[in-house]
């Protein structure tokens, strides 16, 4: 009897574990599958033109995502251009130069900074950053402080802790014995960083940058509040800084708008919105995969 009882338990825990795991996996697969399936109409309607089209007028059934992809990339580039150097520098300082006792408070601030909700960032963006950017851009006569630049700056602050934490992880992977050996040879602490730590942590740091970029691409709330949400903004010429001073739209901010609610009744319009979601998911997931690959190859030896 006791044996029977025991056996029953074994299969219960095991079965429940597998069932719940498969449920979670199923949810993820379902999400991807839904986005693919529900966006089919727009791909049939516009083909690759959905990605390259520069105009989005849903009443005329014109769906082009290019301005939003552009906006997403520009905002993320601004964010990364600022957050990557500062975040990597700060991580180098805390993990290579700072004595352990001082490292703790910095780490704590960092963890807290990472926890600040995006809606709070958005609020600060509206109250403070928008005005500062407006003043800064005065010479170029901006229409308002809601610009791609504002969104990029706000995102830079938001992803800074991510860059820092992941860079620190990468630096921790460098064996302490190598640092000691290099110091024993008479290298200065900076030379140890530049010649030992950085080269070895490079794949991990690149991964940190990619994963942070992924986060920047997908952030909705904070960007939504300060980006201006102006459709159909396409730069001409293509490579110019001018759009930074103007309002724009990102994939995520479009999805967060009221249009998502309006679109549901119309299969084509809805599929266009889901198509945007699919593009965003594809962008972010490829960055995540690339980052994960780099991190793994970093830890392998």
């Amino acid at each position: 009897m006791a044996m029977e009882h025991r056996r029953g338990r074994v299969s219960l825990i095991k079965a429940a574990s597998w069932a719940f795991t498969l449920l979670a996996a199923g949810a993820v697969v379902a999400m991807v599958g839904l986005f693919v399936w529900q966006s089919r109409p727009v791909w049939r309607h516009a083909g690759w033109g959905f990605l390259s089209g520069r105009e989005w007028f849903y009443r005329q059934e014109i769906f082009g995502a290019a301005p939003m992809i552009y906006g997403t990339l520009v905002v993320a580039a601004v964010a990364l251009g600022l957050a990557a150097p500062i975040g990597i520098g700060a991580a180098l300082f805390t993990s290579e130069f700072l004595p352990r006792r001082l490292r703790i408070p910095v780490k704590v601030s960092l963890e807290l900074l990472a926890g600040v909700p995006s809606v709070v960032y958005g609020l600060l963006g509206i109250l403070l950053l928008r005005g500062w950017v407006y003043d800064l851009l005065e010479p170029w006569e901006p229409l308002s402080g809601d610009t791609l630049l504002t969104a990029g700056l706000l995102l830079a602050v938001m992803i800074l802790p991510t860059v820092m934490t992941l860079t620190e992880d990468a630096l921790r992977g460098v064996p302490a014995a190598q640092r000691l050996a290099a110091r024993g040879l008479g290298l200065t602490a900076t030379e140890v960083v530049l010649r030992v730590s950085l080269p070895q942590a490079a794949p991990g740091i690149l991964a940190a940058v990619l994963l942070s970029l992924g986060r920047a691409l997908g952030e909705m709330i904070a960007v939504f509040l300060v980006v201006g949400r102006q459709d159909n903004q396409w730069p001409s010429p293509l490579l110019t800084l001018r759009p930074l001073t103007e309002a724009g739209q990102t994939l995520a901010s479009k999805l967060g708008g009221a249009e998502t609610n309006i679109a549901y009744g119309d299969p084509l319009h809805w599929s266009a919105m889901v198509g945007l979601a699919l593009v965003l998911l594809a962008l972010v997931t490829s960055l995540t995969l690339l980052g994960a690959r780099l991190r793994r190859s970093d830890h392998a030896p």
């Binding site: 999400m31 997908g218 909705m220 999805l255 965003l280 998911l281 995540t288």
Partner: peptide
Amino acid sequence: LNGVPSIL
């Protein structure tokens, strides 16, 4: 899954 944007 951790990387999926929350709006999605």
